[in-house]
Amino acid sequence: MDGLLALYIFTLAAFTGYEIIAKVPVILHTPLMSGSNFVHGVVVVGAMLMLGTADTVVQQAIGFFAVALGAANAAGGYVVTERMLAMFKKKEA
């Protein structure tokens, strides 16, 4: 990828991340940490790309490991975050 283009993406993404968190109430910090933990679970896509182009057994083994870990990051992150956020209710009926 074009290095300069990537630099633009890096910078803008960093600002976006900062802005998203900057105005969040403290009560949501734990779920948000968990939610952002889920989002970097997208690493599973990268792991799939590596496993999909692995040519040796060693590469396949590491690739399998990477996909499993990435999937666990995504699935676990989602479940845990969803469980926490489902409890935020405004008023008991």
Partner: peptide
């Protein structure tokens, strides 16, 4: 780019947090 964006957004947000 999807990995870059997701990763860096979390990196920045996590640093602030």
């Amino acid at each position: 780019p999807a990995l870059i964006i997701a990763g860096i957004v979390v990196g920045a947000a996590g640093t602030l947090l």
